[in-house]
């Protein structure tokens, strides 16, 4: 359970583009054809390794319906990475990207890494948005782009891990202030300079220890 860093992710995008399915594929390696709709926010987590370091991803999967934006907006705060997802078989989900991006930029910290994801790449016959369009949008707005399929798991790992790599690089470059949790990065308990590891301290990662018995 020990990790060097914890990154907070947020998954955003229109309703029904497959946000929850991407998360489920990444955390549980399975695909659920009929998924509950998401109200508010749901959570996932997984440990990955980058550069030999254990990194825990804490992923916030948000409701996609426009009505909920006023609520989900507050979840951008403290996110180090965001997956902005559209559905390649529904053009309107692509058209809404601009508003999503504006929202994200406005309510997150400026260094948040945003990965643009065109999901449902397995449904080639129903494709409405060309891959080139996605690439062009990403280039224009300085995003990383990838087409994925939560169903076949194509590129799902890569989407999450590449985002983490980029965040990790930014940490190495010193762009992120890792001591400020508002950036969505937490240093693991063993690695924290402010929390020297105590021998036999029970290995709990939470340092709050509310003092009740």
């Amino acid at each position: 359970m020990s990790y060097a860093y914890l990154f907070k992710y947020i998954i955003i995008g229109d309703t029904g583009v497959g946000k929850s399915c991407l998360l489920l594929q990444f955390t549980d390696k399975r695909f659920q054809p009929v998924h509950d709709l998401t109200i508010g926010v749901e959570f996932g987590a997984r440990m990955i390794t980058i550069d030999g370091k254990q990194i825990k991803l804490q992923i916030w999967d948000t409701a996609g319906q426009e009505a909920f934006r006023s609520i989900t907006r507050s979840y951008y705060r403290g996110a180090a990475g965001a997956l902005l997802v559209y559905d390649i078989t529904r053009r309107e989900t692509f058209s809404h990207l601009t508003t999503w991006l504006e929202d994200a930029r406005q309510h997150s910290n400026s260094n948040m890494v945003i990965m643009l994801i065109g999901n449902k790449s397995d449904l080639e016959s129903r494709r409405e948005v060309k891959k080139e369009e996605g690439e062009a949008f990403a280039r224009e707005h300085g995003l990383v782009f990838m087409e994925t399929s939560a169903k076949t798991a194509a590129n799902v790992e890569e989407a999450f891990i590449n985002t983490a790599k980029e965040i990790y690089e930014k940490i190495q470059e010193g762009v992120f202030d890792i001591n400020n949790e508002a950036n969505g990065i937490k240093i693991g308990p063993q690695h924290s300079p402010t929390n020297p590891s105590l021998p036999g301290a029970g290995g709990k990662d939470g340092s709050q220890g509310g003092g009740c018995c």
Partner: peptide
Amino acid sequence: FAHFDNSGLTPDLYLLD
């Protein structure tokens, strides 16, 4: 309540649903 407060688990995260 104190535990939730410490860990940042606010009601909106679960109560909305």
